[in-house]
Amino acid sequence: MYSADFDYHRARSLADAQRLLAAHPGAKLLAGGHSLIPLMKLRLAAPSAVIDIGRIPELRGISRSGDSIRIGALTTHAELAASADLQKSAAALAEAAGLVGDPAVRSRGTIGGNVAHADPASDLPTVLVALDARITAVGPKGERTISADDFFTGIMTTALADDEVVTAIAVPASVRGQGSAYVKFAHPASRYAVIGAAALVSIANNRCSGARVALGGLLPHASRVRSVEKALTGKPLDAAAIEAAAALAQADLGSNVAGDIYASAEYRTAMAPVYVKRAVAAAAARAGLA
C-alpha cells in the first residue's frame, strides 16, 4: 500500500529537529519507522510532513552514570537486548526488548519511538513503568523529565507535547537484592503483547522490601497493579505468597480491560494473575541471585 503524499525532512541535530518541528506543524517524527510507517501505508496516519531524526548521533547509545542507566532515544530494541549493562542491571528491559516483534523489527525499532507511540500492547512501556524509568524530552521551553508512571496517559497518548522530542530514557540500575523480569503472552500474528507483565522486586532479610509490578496489553496504557505490589511487600517471596498477591491483579484491572477477536477481556483478565505471578517469581529469582 502507498501512503498519502508527505514532505520528508532529515534532521541533522536535535536543534535541527526542533527547528523543523516548529516550522512544520502537524509533522510527525520518524525514528525507526516501525510504528509510523505501517500506519501511513494503511493511510491511518497521513501527516503532511515527516521529520527523520533517525541519524542524530547524540540520541544513540547506552551509558551508565552512577546508579542509573541512560538510554538514548534512538537505541534499537536489538541494542537493548544485547546490552550487557541492561542484562545485568535492568534485566526486564533487555528481556522485553528481545521479545519485541521479530529480528527485523528489533534491528530498526527504537525505544524513543516506542514510548512516544505508546501502543497499549507494546512491551517496553510496561517494563519502564515497573522499573520507574524517567523519560527526558526536549521542547521549545527546554528539557524536562517525566516519570514513566506519568508519561503514558491513554491509548497511543502520552504526556509529550506536540513540539517535544524524546531524547533519552533513564532506568535505575538494580542493586544487590533487586531483580526484574518481563513475561509475555505474545499475539501469534502481531507479536504484540496480549498480556505483558513486568516486575521489579527488592529482597531484604528474605522478605520483599519493595515491589513494582506493571501490566501491559490489557488497559489503555501500561499500568501498575498496586494491590499486588502492596501485598508482596513484607512477605517472603515463596510460591504461595506470590500466587496470593498476583490474584489481586484482577481487582486492580477492574472492568476496563479491552478484548479483541483473539482474546476476550474476560480471558485476559483471568490470565493477568498468571503472568504477574510468573513475572514476580522470575524477578524474585534474579533478586536472590544478585
Binding site: P188, A189, I261, Y262
Partner: peptide, 16 residues
C-alpha cells in the same frame, strides 16, 4: 473481514 492484515491473521513462524 476482521483479520485483514498480517497483524491479525497469524501465519506460522519458524520460532514456534
Amino acid at each position: 473481514l476482521l483479520t485483514g492484515s498480517l497483524a491479525d491473521y497469524a501465519i506460522p513462524r519458524a520460532d514456534v
